[in-house]
Design a protein around this nucleic acid. Structure first.
Lengths: 208, 208
DNA sequence: TAACTATGAATGAAGG
DNA sequence: CCTTCATTCATAGTTA
């Protein structure tokens, strides 16, 4: 009872009908629409296909993939479609961000330097040290977008497979968490100054 | 220091085979990517911005905010992005739950009704459910009360121990408004007022 | 120590 | 494609 099987890529009625929450009823025919949770085997397959270069399978291919995945659990065409769409999107964004952060701090090398801090969107390296605000990153990758040649057809991009269940390079860093907690008035001083950089703030202040 | 990975909270939906991407073998070096832990000052700022009405800052603004937060500790754009998204989502959820439980039994409108499992959650401020139209009514900021009246004993003075102030502020009631970029000074109005509840802030301002 | 809570970080599903 | 929402996973911190 999950798997949305919308036959077509396009639309699907499907309104999250916000039904009752809570109460784990024992009732059969559960109305609650739970989302598809791809099983590891399914992810493996999807990931493989994606990394093989088929990042945007046509409908025909999507159906085939779905049938394949179905051997390991219920799944609909839509699920497959969405999966590729999201994978594509997030992969690209991740890539873009990686590039951007790499530009800001060339020191971070692929080896092992990931740490807390997060990134622009998906995962990104820390921000450690005093990275002066130099980053005004732009769109940073010609990427595929330009190739609008064939609609909904193979789009071999050879993503470097930045991440997947298997080639995940564990990166851990000792690193110290600078617990630099500024004194309160220093904070205010700084905050005040910062806020003043907002024209709207100055306007507001002069208004009162 | 093994940090066993056997937690297994939640996870594990009937997965057919024995294979799980999350609880699988973590035999290697600890891949524990520590997650971002916003500092009190950062939370104050984020909360302020959120409560000012900017519940969904555009990318541009997100970067701005990140740079601001960065003064108090390492943080990435993604962290900010996630923070707002979660804040928004959970605020809404609480709202829904509140309303639901309110509909079930209008009589119970306690501020604190600890109950196991299914009760009302901690209070989240009123939210005129998009009553639409005109009246923005209000203006009553949640902070108010104690703070403004008299110097309600804020022993600032101390150079360092004034952190506890932030925890007070951060728990103040917020109000949600439509997810639009207000582009106005509401944000600053709220922030300004909030900050003014800090004697040390006022002192600082009058000093410059 | 285990259960619980709050919340950061993903990711499935849509809307535009 | 992009952005947003809802749900889920994972964990630092707290509590009994």
């Amino acid at each position: 009872p999950a798997t949305s099987t919308m036959g077509d890529h396009g639309r699907d009625r499907n309104s999250s009908s916000t039904l009752d929450r809570s109460t784990a009823d024992r009732t059969e025919t559960e109305p609650v629409r739970t989302r598809w949770m791809p099983k590891p085997e399914q992810i493996l397959i999807l990931e493989s296909i994606f990394n093989s270069g088929m990042v945007n399978p046509p409908k025909e291919e999507t159906v085939r993939i779905r049938k394949l995945l179905q051997k390991f659990g219920a799944v609909g065409d839509a699920n497959v479609f969405y999966w590729f769409q999201n994978r594509r999107s997030r992969s690209r964004r991740r890539q873009r961000q990686l590039q951007a952060s790499l530009m800001a701090d060339p020191r971070a090398v692929p080896g092992v330097t990931q740490q807390a801090g997060g990134g622009v969107l998906p995962h990104e390296p820390p921000t450690s040290s005093s990275s002066s605000s130099t980053s005004s990153n732009n769109s940073s990758f010609p990427c595929s977008s330009s190739a609008s040649s064939s609609p909904s057809s193979y789009n071999f991009v050879m993503d470097d497979g930045s991440d997947d269940l298997f080639s995940m390079i564990s990166s851990q860093t000792p690193f110290m968490c600078s617990s630099h907690v500024p004194r309160s008035h220093h904070m205010f001083a700084w905050l005040h100054e910062t806020l003043n950089s907002f024209p709207s703030f100055r306007a507001f202040c002069s208004m009162t």
